[in-house]
Every structure is written in C-alpha cells, then in structure tokens.
Design a protein around this nucleic acid. Sequence first.
DNA 1: ACGGCAATTGACAACGTTGTCAATGACGCT
DNA 2: AGCGTCATTGACAACGTTGTCAATTGCCGT
Lengths: 339, 339
Amino acid sequence: MTSIEDVARRAGVSPITVSRVIRNHPNVREETRDRVRQAVSDLGYVPNAVARGLKQSRSGLIALIITDMVDPFFSVVAHGVEDAVRKAGMMLVLGNSDDELALEMEYLRIMGEHRVDGIILVPTPRPAEFSFPSLPASLPIVVLDRSLPGIAADVVRCDTASGTAALCRHLLDRGRRRIAIVGGLPQTLTWHERVSGYQAVLREAGLTMPAEFVIAGNYKADSGVAAVQALMAAAERPDAIIAANAKVVRGVLDELVTLGFRIPEDVAVAAVDDPFPASKFWPRLTVVEQPGYEMGKVAVELLLRRLPPTSSNEMPREVIFGTELRIGVTCGETLAAGA
Amino acid sequence: MTSIEDVARRAGVSPITVSRVIRNHPNVREETRDRVRQAVSDLGYVPNAVARGLKQSRSGLIALIITDMVDPFFSVVAHGVEDAVRKAGMMLVLGNSDDELALEMEYLRIMGEHRVDGIILVPTPRPAEFSFPSLPASLPIVVLDRSLPGIAADVVRCDTASGTAALCRHLLDRGRRRIAIVGGLPQTLTWHERVSGYQAVLREAGLTMPAEFVIAGNYKADSGVAAVQALMAAAERPDAIIAANAKVVRGVLDELVTLGFRIPEDVAVAAVDDPFPASKFWPRLTVVEQPGYEMGKVAVELLLRRLPPTSSNEMPREVIFGTELRIGVTCGETLAAGA
DNA sequence: ACGGCAATTGACAACGTTGTCAATGACGCT
DNA sequence: AGCGTCATTGACAACGTTGTCAATTGCCGT
C-alpha cells in the first residue's frame, strides 16, 4: 500500500508537507501543493484513516445499535442517523441486536474496541442488576426510543403514551367498546407507555377491560398472531385491537384473515408505527406515526455535541417527540354504542 | 485511555505477553495469564482495534453501500449482510447512496480511506466512460443486485426477468390484456431485466402493447404516482400494472385510489418485491419475491473468500437467485378475454 | 543594512499494537 | 553429563499518520 512517505519522496518534500496538503492546511506554497497533488494522483495514494485515527484518537465512526433493522420504524430511524452521520463527515457502523442482550453486549464490546466516537443505542431490556460492559471511558452514548436506567446518557424518544391514547380515543369515537392492545416487549419503556396511554383513556371513559385484553409479546409478527389466537378463542372477544408496532400489526391482520374475521366489521385494527410508511396505501391502516427520521437525526446531533473538540459536559438531555394520528379504514364505521 | 502497556506494567510482564493473553495465544503460562487477566479487569482495559488494524493492515470492517435503505428489499438484504458480517467477527459499515452517483463515489472514497476489508456495492447507473475513484488496490468488491461493467468483481443478483415473466403470465391467465410496467430506474440491469421478462411473455402470447405502457422512473413511490397519472389519463388505459419494486407499487396503489379506480376491478396491480415482506397481509398484493436475506448472506461469503489469509484469486463468480411468485388478491378474477 | 515578522518546510516522537527473532529455562533422551 | 526440543517471555522495530517545535527563507519598515 502506498503511504504518505512514498508520495513525499516522489514530490521531493517531507511527509508532513504531504499531510498538510491532504488536509488543506493553508501554509503550503501553491507550487508545492501542486507538486504533491501530482504525486498523489500519480501513485494513486489513498490516505489511511486508520493511522490517522490512531494518531488523533478519533475513528470517525458512529455506531448505531438497533433491535430490528427490518422493522419499518427502525429502518427509518437508521436512515435519519445515516444521513446525519454522513453530513458530519463520519461513517455509520450498524449493529442489529435482535433484542438479544448477549448480542447487544457483543456489539458494544466490539464497537468499543474499534473506538467508535459515539454510540446510539436502542437498549434491549435487561435485569436491573445487569452491568454495562467495559467501554472506553468517556465514550458518549445516546439512548434511543427506550430507556436505560443507571446510565447518564442523552435520550431521544417519542411520547407514544399520548399517541396510543389518541388511537384509543379514536376507537371509542367509532363506537368500539372492547379494545385490546397487543404485542409489545415486556419491560420496555415503549410498551409500558403504550399500555398506560391505553389504560388512561379507558379509565377516563369509565370502561374496564378484561386483563386478558393486554397481551405482551416480542414486537414481532408472531406476537400478533398469537395474540389474535388467544383473543378470538375467548368467550368475550374484542371489537378492536391495537398492535404495538408495525410488525405486530402484520401478524394481527394475517391471523384475523386466516381465522375468517372481517376488518373492520368484526374487529377494528390500529397500530403504533406504520407498516408502510409515508403512504396513503390501499387499504389504509389507522396508525399513529413516530417521526423516526427526525429522531435519528436528533440522536446524532446530541452525540456530536459530546465529541471533541467542542465536547460539552452539560447534563444529559432528553428529547421527546410527539406522534401523529393517521386515520385509515381499518377502524370502520361507527357502531351502535354498547358493543 | 489505558493501553496494553499499562496493563503490562501492572501485571509485571511485557506488553507482548499481554497481547498474547488477549488473543489467546497458547504459549502463555496459566499463572501469567491469570495475572494479566486480573490487570485487564482492574484497569478496565479495552483493546484498541484501530492500532491492531494499523499493524495488521486489516480493519475488520465490511462496507455495504445500498441505494435505498428504507426500501423493504434492501433493508432485508442489509439484514442478511449484517448477520453474516457479525458471524465472521467483523463489523458492518453502512452507506446509503440514494441512487446518486456523487454520493456513491463519496462513500467509496471514505470507505477506501478507512481501509474497509471489503465492499458490497449496489451500483447506481453511471455513464459508460465513468471511472472508478481511486480505491486501495486489491480491495475486494462484490456487486449486488445490479451490474457494473468494467470491474472484475463477484456479482450476486436475482433473475427478475423470469420473475416478471411469471407475473405477466399470471396476469394474462387472469384475463388481463393491456398490461403496463412502471417505475424502474433506466440503465439499471434490474429494470432492463424486468422489462425484458415482460416483453418476452407478451411476444410469446402474440400481444403488442403501446410503447407508453413501459414507463421508467426512479424506483421510488413518486414514479408510481406519475406513471399512474400518465397511464390513466390516456385514451387507452391499461387493465393491469406491474410495479418495478416495493416503493413504486405504493405510489401506484395510492394514486389509483386517489383517482378513484378500483383494484382489481378496474386495474390489477402486481409488483416485484413485497412492500410488506413475509406476510400474508390483508389485502394481499400479488408479487414476486427476491430472496434478499440470502443474497446479502452470499455476498458476504463471496467477499470473505477474497480476504487474507485465504484470499482466493479465482475468476469472478456470479451467483444468480430465482424468485418466488406469491399470488394475492390484487390481480382480480378472470375477465372476459379481449379487454 | 538590520531587526522582526510571517510564511514555508522539516525533524522527531508518539499514537497502540503485533511480527520477527532471540533469550531463557525446563525437560527428556541417549 | 551433554544434547536437542519445547514452552515461555521479551526486545526491537514497524504499521502510517500527525502534533510540537524548530529551522529556513523572504520580505517589510526604519
């Protein structure tokens, strides 16, 4: 591999001068600059960011660890992160934890070893006593979408409690009276929020649902399938189902169709996150949308503030976004009140 | 940052011995090994992969450059790549070119500078005379999904010609006689393939479509919207539309609904790629699916073969996958033959 | 002509790791 | 006892870059 020294030799200057030309330092004579540029191009020299990273103790890498890169929500988040990282002149390193703690730990370790300059993490739930792997001290972390108690980190998330509440109110408005909520991963902040939003609205409306109408899962399609099977096999069936995210709603819809139920005549379906984002689609689901792209972008901005040379030591900051209700056709016409 | 030397000092050994312990070299006495491990843990030492990378001339990074990370197909491809890369003990660096040549070039440059060990590239179309940016020599590249003439690289792609042909035949079977195909990016191999599959079947069936029934685009939703507007404003409307990918079909469906057309009564809709993968969904689109996950996985395998120490110098290899037709409800009942 | 200043260029060392080779000691074999 | 072999450990240098500081040059004003 040709190095800066080869270029220097060819241009008849010292390696340092080559380095200056590459980094556009002002103090190089125009003529020297040209000579170096010529040598660079003659030799096909490509600067070595690894060596530079070693010398400067900054790798130029930003890590993103998400739980499910195929989930439309996280895929949009990742896009927001990618754009912002690139605009900052850095590179994105992506890890998919699949909501497995061991994998997340593995990634944190590897990324620490690679000296990424910062980490954006969607943490998977962990036992309270669980300790963080040894990371390079002062490696800034931004927690995204969920919470991670005991770590002093900036947080970016979305108020899905009020979003779910809006969904729930919409269903009540449409005359639904037996509403279930399904599919979120227990011990995640996001599932907890969604359930509280749901419960708050029902309490407000003076309604009580059977405990079996709240069914946790794993935020994946099979949770939706299993939940529908359980719900529709019971004596008292729901007339509406709120799915906890875009993948769960897929399972819910699938299984309802498979079992022969009509949507929305028999059961209304709504979801947090849009399985088919930014589209009116046909036929359109009723959903609340989180601003995933923005969330990713802001996470990067928070991270960059913590980086040298401007590295700020402010208190951790929490940025909370709102959601947007998008009404589709899966919640049906108004039914006669009272189920 | 604590370094291997600090650990060595604390354990009363030389840095090399610490290095051996970390890398599990066999030739270290058990007692020494323990002492070093203790020191590592006492000091919270994290090995520096940047320094190691510099010394060994391998970064442990694999780069993936895709054209649209939010597209369901590429998002699944990326997942396949991520899994395989992790299992190989490396890290994934992700770039999104947005089908812009300048961005792709920028990424290739940065990734070259970072000395990634290999690149998986979905190339965006480029003028024939366009030259590749100067990359470190011998940096292996695998071309994914499309083609990149003039580069000796392994290729992984999918035979969407036959897939599109199957879709087209299915539509003919259902009685459709005026079939349009829309939305692919001109000059991409994939769009070219899809159009040829379509044309081959029509030729076979002795049918001729107006030239306006083939409408290129940019593989994004707005291509679908624009195509529908053009098609449905014409005197002779199609009775079926094949969308070139998952995002285009979204635009197609949206715009058809917006304009008041019924699916499939007025127009059948089919697509290459599933906007909502691995689901029976409701209501189900008729699509041909590409095995994105497998494609990503195989791309990594091809790349790894080219890496030291086993680095193979075999001729470039091309792996071509097949597609699977999944029949949904958007192609409707059989119509009377003859439009 | 001379001191002072800015522009330009370079020497040296260091970032943290590991490949190569050598040194040391222990052990078994003849 | 003398030899070779193996396990264990370390010294040195190098990977490619850049921060720090110093040296050189040219030019200005007085």
